[in-house]
Design a protein around this nucleic acid. Structure first.
Lengths: 170, 170
DNA sequence: CCATAACTTCACAAAGTTGTGAAACAAGCG
DNA sequence: CGCTTGTTTCACAACTTTGTGAAGTTATGG
């Protein structure tokens, strides 16, 4: 019966104005940015919406209401987001209502994911060096890419470590 | 009249085996990886194909032959790639044949591009802090994202610098 | 155990992308 | 100049993606 985040006026309009329009605007702007970067649309909107919520966690119904989308769309989006580890799904024991939470440190998870991509790329590029021949000009060019990607992977790990410590001491 | 990269048997089969099948395989594997990361298909294939070529530069006809795609598809792909600065188009004076070349340091260009994306994100997130209120929990969460993205942008710049110097001295 | 609430799955319609052939365009070259 | 070769543009068809309503599944709670 109660709404999840703030329990105020029981009969609220079904419009996106359910939460302040400035916030809705931000959510859509951010979702647009993410979409442009290759993120699927609905996951982007759901993610942005969670990020902009005070508790950092909303129920399926909340999301549907705020974004004006069907339960099916919410379902699809949260499945995607939890697969790429950007949200956690949690179920309070003794309730069948699920809640979706943005990870404590969103960016750590995103970077972890990027690491996996880097590794696959390194693997593919390495096989390419063999394919074109290590001594050919193409071979050398591709080998350099392998070096760059490896450099990147290592440095990114160090970078994240650095971020975590600066974060901790502030 | 002559084929651009290596001038061998004049009547070659029109199949992708025009260049060694191992190379073709690598090109398709890499293109698949890039596609999975959100890169449009044809640009991914063209880019991979250029990367795997000895001269690092091919004509429109070469690309069409190797990838078995129409001139229109090549045209679209190279337009995309040059817009995101991943290839350069060059025209040898006194010829109407254009050649497309992977940039000397492919990754530098790609990272430069990523920088622009980071900047837009930082801007959007910053506007979000205002939208939800800087003192709210959501505001603090989003502000932390701004900090992280800013950290990233700066560190990435330093990282690229470091890569370039290690590269130079090897 | 049945009723019901919450979420998921599925088939489909709408919308968007992608690559093609054909026509238009540009620019060297005879 | 006009022919010829290489590139681009355009309309369209094939294919893919996206979000929905409705039926299905699971599990709580009477």
């Amino acid at each position: 019966m109660e709404k999840s985040e703030e329990q105020s006026s029981p009969e609220r309009p079904q419009r996106e104005g359910d939460y302040p329009p400035e916030v809705a605007d931000f959510v859509e702007r951010l979702a647009a940015d993410l979409t442009e970067a290759g993120f699927p649309r609905m996951p982007a909107r759901v993610f942005s919406c969670l990020l902009a919520s005070d508790t950092g966690s909303l129920s399926s119904a909340d999301l549907g209401e705020r974004l004006l989308i069907s339960p099916a769309a919410v379902s699809g989006a949260v499945r995607y987001l939890s697969q790429v580890h950007l949200i956690a799904r949690e179920r309070q024991p003794g309730s069948r209502r699920e809640r979706y939470r943005v990870h404590t440190d969103v960016w750590y998870e995103a970077m972890t994911n990027r690491d996996a991509v880097l590794n696959r790329w390194i693997h593919t590029f390495s096989s390419g060096v063999e394919a074109v021949g290590p001594e050919s000009p193409a071979g050398r060019r591709i080998a350099e890419s392998v070096e760059f990607l490896t450099f990147m992977r290592n440095e990114m790990a160090a970078l994240m470590e650095r971020w975590r410590t600066t974060r901790r001491e502030s």
